[in-house]
Design a protein around this nucleic acid. Structure first.
Lengths: 155, 155
DNA sequence: GCGTTATAGTTTACATTTCCAGTTATTTTT
DNA sequence: AAAAATAACTGGAAATGTAAACTATAACGC
């Protein structure tokens, strides 16, 4: 796509490129800050961002293979394997070998895991409201569409 | 802000909330994927995302304190300290104690660090173009504004 | 000036992530 | 049906990240 003078700078190969003009730089920065904020809220209740991520995914999926969760959370499988077993030791998840396919490890939430979800949602809600309080629905929807599109582009 | 039926679901405290309707979930996922893709390109040339981040910041700032870099990159100071000294061992950066303030450690790029920048930009450009090829300037600008606004909201 | 407080960074001990080389189970080829 | 290829993990070493304690320097309040 042909770009105007200003937005050529968003392309890292352009000589005028700078972090200030880079969409990915700003995106990374925002998500980094979001993680810092979430961590600060989550630590006191014995939770953290990776776990909250897994719990959310399992809330949606009920039962999911480790590799599916890793895929949805965009992490390496071996990282996820270790996280899942840590969460199992903490009583948040429960695993079993699939009867359909002996290679897959099915993961599901325990009662305690589901309880943790409610607790964490309250915290996540605080940050969400602070972040989006002055962003109208239409803007938010528009952004979501765009984010999904970019995701698909590099998937 | 009052939200319509659909976008209430974006708020984690809403009963109908789900990752699918959560802006932060999608943002995290996109940035996670971007990091995975960048890593895959950067590894073969002995680079990675945190280093590329620092190099970019130093390209903008010439000389910067460790805490400044940590702040701009949204990382903990102790993490940044370690990264900076790793990069120094690799010959990418050079540090010195400020003559103005004996507490601050000034960091700057070496020749090798500047050379690395060019190399990495080529890789980053590939992903950028793939990500944004079908996104017009106006959309990109609009997104940037929004991302900055949300960043400021939770800063 | 001097004790107190704040700032900037460093270090250490520990937790987590990543790489990579297996292992076992399933699917595809021949 | 055996062999080969692929998929889903798993385990251990090495790299990296984080929290908390510590050091050095600067700034304040009197």
């Amino acid at each position: 796509m042909k770009r105007g003078k200003i937005w050529k700078q968003a392309d890292p190969t352009d000589p005028a490129f700078s972090p200030q003009t880079s969409p990915f730089f700003h995106l990374s920065r925002l998500v980094g800050l979001y993680h810092l904020r979430m961590d600060a809220h989550l630590k006191p209740i014995g939770m953290d961002v990776p776990r909250w991520r897994v719990i959310n995914i399992l809330y949606e999926h009920e039962i999911a293979a480790i590799s599916t969760i890793a895929d949805l959370a965009v992490t390496r499988v071996s990282t996820m394997t270790k996280l899942i077993y840590r969460m199992e030791r903490e009583g948040l998840t429960q695993t079993s070998v699939s009867s359909q396919d002996g290679r897959v490890t099915e993961v599901r939430l325990t009662e305690k895991g589901r309880a943790a979800l409610d607790l964490v949602r309250a915290k996540a809600g605080l940050i969400f409201q602070r972040a989006f309080h002055d962003i109208p629905d239409s803007e938010m929807e528009h952004m979501m569409q765009l984010i999904k599109k970019i995701y698909d582009n590099i998937y």
